[in-house]
């Protein structure tokens, strides 16, 4: 008799506990998302309503050369960052993991430090280091490439350098994830492998690498999402220039919405980016999961 009553009560309690979160979620995520979708189907300016234009914005997008340039640049940036930063973080974590005593937290702190800096400080630091006249890195560039270069105003240099800055800024967190993963692998497994006759190289590829794969998959996926949302660094370092060579989707959204006052069109670009992130990250995560089960 008491049973259904009890279940009901339990459900009500659960509901009341998740309610604040659910309401907040609906208010600050679901509703704006819905509005953006709605907006992307109108010719609305930044503020105020527009008229319904159906898929007109999306059709226009297909013919917008800058949109394709930005999309391509986003892809280029992914290539420049995701795998390099993952490999780098893994190598650093492997090295740090070998350190003993006070050295380990000390070295780790050095690698992690950039991560806690705000992006504006990061970009300032690098702008200063790479300054055409006074930058401390310019002599090095000159020594290697024969001449000084204003990297943020050079079509070839701009994206790779932004990628470099981004990796320097965010890599510490990945190192931390890898380090946690490495610590989760029991030492006995390496000892068993040593007794089984595995060389250090084989120990890495047959024990460390497969056991670390879930962490690697996580790092790759987090990186993919993070780097697709590239905006701050470009906005602060190159404003998308020169000649749109560092133009990316989020910057385009910003320009269309806040500079050109095209709320509807900006919303359409935002929707495209949203769908890309969703599809690509889900796809990648599934792919990586399959990889784990061979």
């Amino acid at each position: 008799m008491a049973r259904p009553n009890k279940t009901l009560r339990r459900n009500l309690i659960a509901l009341s506990l998740v309610a604040p979160f659910t309401l907040t979620f609906l208010l600050v995520f679901a509703w704006p998302t819905f509005k953006v979708i709605q907006l992307s189907l109108t010719d609305a300016p930044l503020i105020g309503d527009g008229t319904w234009v159906g898929l007109q914005n999306y059709r226009e997008l297909l013919d917008d050369r800058i949109f394709w340039v930005a999309l391509k640049n986003n892809g280029y940036f992914l290539v420049l960052t995701i795998v390099p930063t993952t490999v780098l973080a893994l190598l650093i974590a492997l090295a740090v993991n070998r350190l003993r005593g006070w050295m380990q937290p000390f070295i780790l702190a050095i690698f992690f430090l950039p991560y806690i800096l705000p992006v504006s400080v990061v970009t300032l630091v690098w702008q200063w280091m790479l300054d055409f006249q006074f930058g401390v890195l310019q002599p090095m560039i000159e020594a290697i490439f024969g001449k000084r270069t204003a990297v943020f105003r050079d079509p070839t240099w701009v994206m790779p350098v932004i990628a470099l800055v981004t990796i320097w800024w965010t890599n510490g967190f990945n190192v931390l994830l890898f380090l946690a993963g490495l610590r989760n692998i029991p030492t006995e497994l390496y000892e068993a492998a040593a007794l089984d006759g595995a060389t250090p190289r084989q120990r890495f590829w047959r024990v460390t690498w497969p056991l670390l794969w879930p962490v690697t998959a996580l790092v790759l996926t987090l990186q993919l999402i993070l780097q697709l949302k590239l905006f701050d660094q470009v906005y602060l370092l190159s404003q998308g220039g020169p000649f749109n060579t560092s133009q990316v989707l989020l910057l385009l959204v910003y320009n269309e919405a806040f500079q050109q006052n095209n709320g509807g069109y900006a919303s359409a670009i935002a929707m495209v980016l949203f769908v890309i992130i969703l599809v690509v990250s889900v796809m990648q995560f599934q792919l990586l999961r399959i990889g784990r089960h061979r």
């Binding site: 029991p186 068993a192 007794l195």
Partner: peptide
């Protein structure tokens, strides 16, 4: 090296891969 001694070891917590 451990592998060259002709010994095999069974660990307390198994240490299976």
């Amino acid at each position: 090296e451990p592998a060259d001694r002709g010994v095999a070891m069974v660990f307390q917590n198994y240490a299976l891969y």
